[in-house]
Design a protein around this nucleic acid. Sequence first.
DNA 1: AATGAATGAGCATTCATTCAT
DNA 2: CATGAATGAATGCTCATTCAT
Lengths: 217, 217, 217, 217
Amino acid sequence: MKQRAIADEDKQARRDSLLAAARSLYLEDTRQLPAVSRIAEAAGLAKGTVYLYFQTKEEIFTALLDQEFSALLDRLTEHFLTASGTPWERVNLFLEFYAKYLQEHPEFLRLAAMANSVLEQNLAQDHVYNFKLQLAQRLERTGNALESALSVLETGSGARLMVRTYALTLGLWQLLDYPDAMREVMMRPALRLLAPDFATELTSALKQFWRGVLADQ
Amino acid sequence: MKQRAIADEDKQARRDSLLAAARSLYLEDTRQLPAVSRIAEAAGLAKGTVYLYFQTKEEIFTALLDQEFSALLDRLTEHFLTASGTPWERVNLFLEFYAKYLQEHPEFLRLAAMANSVLEQNLAQDHVYNFKLQLAQRLERTGNALESALSVLETGSGARLMVRTYALTLGLWQLLDYPDAMREVMMRPALRLLAPDFATELTSALKQFWRGVLADQ
Amino acid sequence: MKQRAIADEDKQARRDSLLAAARSLYLEDTRQLPAVSRIAEAAGLAKGTVYLYFQTKEEIFTALLDQEFSALLDRLTEHFLTASGTPWERVNLFLEFYAKYLQEHPEFLRLAAMANSVLEQNLAQDHVYNFKLQLAQRLERTGNALESALSVLETGSGARLMVRTYALTLGLWQLLDYPDAMREVMMRPALRLLAPDFATELTSALKQFWRGVLADQ
Amino acid sequence: MKQRAIADEDKQARRDSLLAAARSLYLEDTRQLPAVSRIAEAAGLAKGTVYLYFQTKEEIFTALLDQEFSALLDRLTEHFLTASGTPWERVNLFLEFYAKYLQEHPEFLRLAAMANSVLEQNLAQDHVYNFKLQLAQRLERTGNALESALSVLETGSGARLMVRTYALTLGLWQLLDYPDAMREVMMRPALRLLAPDFATELTSALKQFWRGVLADQ
DNA sequence: AATGAATGAGCATTCATTCAT
DNA sequence: CATGAATGAATGCTCATTCAT
């Protein structure tokens, strides 16, 4: 890396390396946001430098969330553009694609699960607004693609279905996830209900939901 | 209140007054758990006394969550015992009852939403196990009642449906809830997708889900 | 010292030892207030303990100033009670006593000189009010004693004369004082005007002022 | 302003614009020196550029003080050159002129009051020496003019009288000044002693002092 | 049982100054 | 000359928990 990031692309690279460091440290221990000093250190920069790229520590993590949501929703939008078959077949393809994405990006939900706590903390209203605006716009776009893909949905309902699909995903994750250190305890038979295989459970739940959605139309 | 709680019932009263204080303070500002000193003060006790009744601050809040889940699930179980009509009618009655409960207990979801952050923090494995065990058992019980009530469900699937129903509820809440201070910002049309009326949205989503569930059988 | 200060007198002792530590560290280097951690350490206490006795760091130093002003003004009040001779003789005795006090308490002005910067910083209005109220009341008391001692002053003018006397003292100190490290530089003849012997200069200036005061009556 | 200040006069212009920015920002809030970045920004320059014109931040403010003292003392010197009447009449004219100057330049004392804290901080000995030297020389010059004007003063006592006059002024200012936010509190009757009208109090005090001075001769 | 005094780890943020460009 | 990216020292305060009384 250059000593000083002067060109815009170099600045973006610096910013990205901070985000990468933050992500990696957070995933090491999701119980709390890593200290800014550790993020800086991991990125090979000084603590003060972090504040040249982000206003507050929390902004780092909303930027991270933004990346995550963007990546997922863009992929889903692309996916919808190439869908074919009967509506139910297309839904199945979508859910498979979605589940596969989550499986291949196991960090997605671990990061997404922090959204609520972060968004309530130390962030200017405007910043939260912008974050939510981005998310809403991406959901609308993906929702539109979904409507086109399925053709049987009411106009305007696509985005709402995306919200509900994601809500079910997030809720299940929060209920079923547990720290690594609890693995042994969670294996006890009495907790079977709260520790099934997440991917299986998610797919099954989403299929039920979407069956209901299609039945609705 | 007595000076010293010697009898078991006096102890329980002390414990309850601490829980009530903690609940009330937390609901004043859900951005973070209130300080132990404030809880003690609100309960009219000394700081050290709190630790005679709870091992850590987090235990206070898991106890609170326990109360909440217990109250909700017991009510649902009761409800199922008196259900009648076709399965779909019974589901509708259940969802109405459920939505009404949440509306009449607006603190439920605000408290429930902290479960994840609290359960990951500063609690002995055993304690978490016991908390989850309680929850699982209550869900099983309610799930069984649900199975009886609907009669069309596969044996053993009731509890899982309760989990999914609650997951969808929790996920929607997390996505759609926002601090009071953000109210104005959330009203802007561009955020309409992320700020619908929660009760309406929840009911609609759950109906879709349950339509799918019944179609599955 | 006891391990825990439970009795009021033990608490007062703790408080005093913190004040003593703060005073001593400040006098070591008057360029800035010492860090709270250093004060605690010097007093043999933990950092957090400081905050059991003072709300903010600045409060420590207003308490110190309070002690200083109290000591000086009480001594002056006492002094006035025993004055005798013609008014001008009594003024001379007073000024000698005052100058001697300042000479014997070389830390007084070094501490007093920080008043302004401290009072503007991080203190609740109420706290500043109370500090100023104390000071005003002590000045009134001393002013009254002064009026009695001189007998030629207009009623009510004593306190104002104390204020002006102290103002001249403080102003001279600020103009003429310099850090130890500057001693050599300050000896250069070109700076003679700004580096006379402080006590001599002060006495001379105050005599002029008081000659004018008596001439006024 | 030119892009680059190459000619000396352009450099001086840059320097002056920095001083103007610093003055204006400091007067906005006298509780602390403004940040260098803000000064640079207000002057329309980059942060680093500041350090081409001043070695340290404190130098900016000593330069400002230099300007202030220079302006005041030059005006006083001029004034003395045109004095007429009896000595006491001339003193009265001088004090009126002085008080009027301070009233018309309300920023003077707010700036002057920072001298002590700034001069103790982060400045090379040489720099402090030069600053004090300037001040001493100006005081001597003004003192000489004063001696000529009054004709009854001992040779060499003029500058000392200027020092004492300024000391009384500064001391009173420090005792009686308070931040705007304290205005309401300072109006309470119990603080009347510490919050009289400054100009009135100053004039009265200086008249007493100068009456003593003339009586001395 | 109850108290509350004592502890001390933990951390975001600011900002004067430097120096590569 | 001018810029502005990078640095990193410096610190007040909170608060869960302990334990002497």
